[in-house]
Design a binder for these strands. Structure first.
Lengths: 203, 203, 203, 203
DNA sequence: TATGAATGAGCTTTCATTCAT
DNA sequence: CATGAATGAAAGCTCATTCAT
């Protein structure tokens, strides 16, 4: 598991190696059960070096969360087609989400499962990220349907997406490609919402 | 905090006290961060007694999971009206789910957040419970719509329900009563599914 | 070194054993260089037991200081003859001091050498003890001589006593008994060298 | 805090910077608590350079002790007026001692407090220095009084001087100038309290 | 002359777990 | 039925020290 650690690596790269190892370890064992010894070994360095660069277990975990959160939001943001209709934006955003979580399962595990259970500093960080996503989805729904009572639908949609991402990760198969997942969720949601929240007055 | 532990309590009662304390502690601190000292103190008994009755931290946590899982499934099962249409069954099942999770937030936290992150023996236990629920939902969808491609929809629905339960727990307000949550989800899902998966021709 | 630790000792006695071992270890190695492992071994118990009873290295050291300070002040207080003249009180107090420091060199080392160098919580504790003694001596001098400018003399006397105690401890010999030390210091202080050691005849 | 470390400083100058930083750090934190990192940073150089010049923490501390001890003995020696009477020599030596310790409190702390508590190599070094001073004082007393039983008085005098130096350092005020301290101690020692502070009524 | 990169060893502290009563 | 006394093992963190440049 330990990377064939070539000696004398510049700091930036070493830090990346350490974060990679930490994300993998935290994802597999959880925050508390993961040991700094284990992370250092997985990174192919000695423990003091991890402390020299990342300061503490808390800060290391926080750095992992921030990196993975930034990567996930960037992936979704990049996937969304800016000028498109809300429906297309939501579909492409979901596609980006499913593609990123499939490509980075450890990062997704940290954000979705681990960070929420550790306690305040981290749970709040991740809750804020999730709230941002929920708000984004809510805005898309509101734009499409002209209703204000969309918070519940947004929360439901986000939860459904999380569940599907976990499903695909737990037992990957051909018909659970990101594209399929996005299609399933769009079908379920968009047609449901169309009936549920009838378009504004004009109709 | 410690329950007014009167001496000489019969075993069944003591075990219930311990499980109550353990569920609360595990929910608030997580499996690893919860200490047997803390649980014993919260239960109002000495630590060796916890070991005498529950044998180990692992078994104690497992007992918590089994008790809370049984309570949750019983609540849902009792809520479902047996002879009704799939739609009514699903709606009443969701109502039971939301009512139980709102009434037992610690139990829900253990099942949904903590048990999944601890590692193998427990994650599998909870995954089995969840799979059962997903299958139940899938069966209802299939019964209603006559399609076989329902696994994705079932996973999405369950995830949406989990998300709504967490939403209600995190910031309770008037318009997030179990009944409202169930209505929101039924609206989103059932109308969506109606369009997505057209009813079998015969019906 | 480890006491032949009979198993299952009541808490009060174990705590005394631990404090004995800690005082000896702190005196010989200093606060920082002393390890909790070493102290536990010297006490004939395992390290967790030391933490269970004394909580932390800081609190352990603090408990040592308090015990030794109390013992020293009690020894001096008991030695002083209450109704006597200031001179007799000072002489008997010094005798008590020299006897106690000679009988408990480790305690004296902790108070005089170690506690002052560790840093604020402890240095202040010991400084307060010393100030008390200085004030007591100052009061005796003032009572005997009717002067107010006695603080300097009191500090000098206390420092002289500390030095003599260290001298006796570092190289004990027959003519450095507590009684001799007290006599030397009383002579110096009460009569001055000029009187005590009459100048050589020729001069 | 870090000296404005201009590059390419000659070795002697750099070593002085390092010793200055080390003396200050050792005085404030103690030998064990002071870290080589902290000393290097305080000196404005990198840690390897400290090792290149001073070899190890032990040697660095030893160099500090030797420098400060040499400075103190030089200050006292220079203050003593060579041809004068023992009494004048002692008074001027004390004046030099109090002036030097007041001017170099960190150096004094290292010699008086820290070096004695660290353990053998250093304690012995400082003990030798102190023995030298005690012998010098003893010789003066013997020369003045013609007695051989002066070791106790010399130890008492040195301890009194140390105490007064610490008193002046801990709470400096107008009437604790080096000159005042020397006067107080000379009065006490040379005439004794009885003579120095004549009883109130009779006078 | 001077430093960024790196580590072996040791420290304090905590925890699950077990006897003896 | 119930507990005070006790510990092996491991975790987070720090430090003196070195090497390659």
């Amino acid at each position: 598991m330990a990377a064939a650690g070539s000696r004398r690596v510049p700091r930036a790269e070493r830090e990346r190696q350490m974060l990679d190892a930490a994300v993998a370890t935290f994802a597999r064992r959880g925050y508390r059960a993961a040991s700094m010894d284990g992370i250092a070994e997985a990174a192919g360095v000695s423990k003091p070096l991890v402390y020299l660069y990342l300061n503490s277990k808390d800060e290391l975990f926080s750095a992992c969360i921030r990196r993975e959160a930034a990567a996930l939001t960037a992936a979704v943001r990049d996937a969304v087609q800016d000028g498109a209709t809300p429906e297309v934006q939501l579909r492409s955003g979901l596609l980006g989400f499913f593609e990123h979580t499939a490509a980075h399962p450890d990062g997704w595990t940290i954000l979705y499962s681990q960070a929420r259970t550790v306690g305040e500093p981290f749970a709040a960080e991740v809750a804020a990220l999730r709230a941002e996503i929920v708000d984004f989805v809510a805005a898309l729904i509101a734009a499409a349907c002209g209703s204000q009572e969309v918070a519940g639908y947004a929360h439901a949609l986000v939860g459904a997406a999380e569940s599907l991402a976990g499903w695909a990760a737990s037992s990957p198969s051909a018909d659970r490609s990101p594209k399929d997942l996005a299609a399933t969720l769009m079908t379920l949601a968009w047609s449901g919402l169309a009936t549920a929240v009838p378009p504004a007055p004009a109709s």
